[in-house]
């Protein structure tokens, strides 16, 4: 029989317990508890407005929660030790546009209390990591969007934190620049840092994260590895996607009757065996619904989210 071993909180890079944050009537974070293991990348996956950024800002001390605690290696989040251990990459481009890349990094390094000798090493490392060494003396306002994003990330790492909080670092970035950012994060992971990565892109969470917490309406509704999440939601079942030539109320009623979910003109059904597709097809034909196409696939994180919330991830 397996015995659960609790890790001392002083060894845990990050521990959030019972965190609640309300803005008036809106409860943005509703009792979230999570632990970040050493060297782990934990993805926070959820649609816009799910409470991801509020959770991150609470951890980094920019929001005072109404309830709950945050500790970093056992220290309260607002302690000097925690501040030094935490690195935050905000969603916004929080940079000084008129300063150069180097000057920005130097400024943020000084704000974190780096000494002069530490500062030079850290700035050079950041410029190299963000592949901005050749643009080091360029004012930020003259950089491309992707470069600004990379510098924005580097500025959050200038003090070489052990725990990194990345809040949707690929927002507004084209696919090529996004791939560059993924490589940067993978390089960073190779150095053994612990990381929380928020996104509403399923493929980012799947590629970068060891575990994924699915957040909706301020709550974690599922937590685990991708396989665990899929297995818990679907077991060994598969997903059938069916698109109809014409979608109307009668189609919606038929999908509901068959236990499926209709979203954006596509009906989703879960089946235990592939042979069940024949039954679905026969039923659609007898009900007079013309199918445009039908496919069978293994469920993914988006399927999990839909299964758990009844909504698509990008709603």
């Amino acid at each position: 029989m397996a015995v659960a071993v609790s890790i001392p909180s002083s060894l845990l890079p990050l521990r959030v317990e019972g965190l609640v944050k309300r803005f008036g009537e809106l409860t943005a974070v509703n009792g979230i508890t999570l632990e970040l293991q050493s060297g782990e990348c934990l993805g926070l996956l959820g649609p816009n407005g799910a409470g991801k950024s509020t959770l991150i800002r609470s951890i980094v001390g920019r929001i005072i929660p109404d309830a709950g605690t945050v500790s970093v290696f056992g220290d309260p989040a607002d302690s000097a030790g925690a501040r030094m251990a935490l690195g935050w990459v905000p969603q916004e481009l929080a940079l000084y546009p008129k300063l150069t890349c180097r000057e920005n990094l130097e400024s943020f390094g000084q704000f974190h209390g780096l000494r002069r000798d530490e500062l030079k090493t850290a700035v050079d490392w950041c410029l190299d990591w963000a592949a901005l060494t050749d643009r080091a003396d360029e004012p930020v306002q003259h950089l491309s969007g992707g470069m600004k994003r990379r510098l924005n990330m580097a500025a959050g790492l200038i003090h070489r934190p052990k725990v990194i909080l990345m809040d949707e670092p690929t927002v507004g970035v084209d696919p090529q620049a996004r791939n560059r950012i993924f490589e940067m994060i993978e390089n960073l992971r190779g150095e053994g840092v612990s990381m929380i990565y928020t996104t509403h892109y399923m493929e980012e969470a799947e590629r970068l994260c060891d575990r994924i917490a699915i957040i909706d309406h301020g709550r974690i509704i599922a937590l685990g590895t991708k396989d665990e999440l899929v297995r818990n939601a679907f077991a060994s079942r598969s997903e059938v996607l069916a698109r109809f030539a014409k979608t109307d109320d009668s189609v919606a009623a038929w999908v509901k009757e068959r236990g499926g979910i209709l979203e954006n003109g596509i009906a989703r059904f879960t089946i235990d065996h592939a042979t069940e597709i024949t039954g679905l097809l026969d039923s659609a034909v007898s009900a007079g619904h013309e199918l445009a196409d039908i496919s069978l696939r293994k469920p993914n994180l988006e399927s999990v989210f839909l299964q758990l919330t009844g909504r698509e991830l990008r709603d």
Binding site: R57, V60, G61, R62, A80, R83, M84, L86, W88, P90, Q91, E92, L93, A94, L95, Y96, P97, F108, F111, H112, G113, A155, G156, H159
Partner: peptide, 13 residues
């Protein structure tokens, strides 16, 4: 407005 203030205040400042 740019969010820089939040980042500064999340440091030792």
């Amino acid at each position: 407005e740019s969010g820089t203030l939040d980042r500064v205040l999340s440091s030792h400042v």
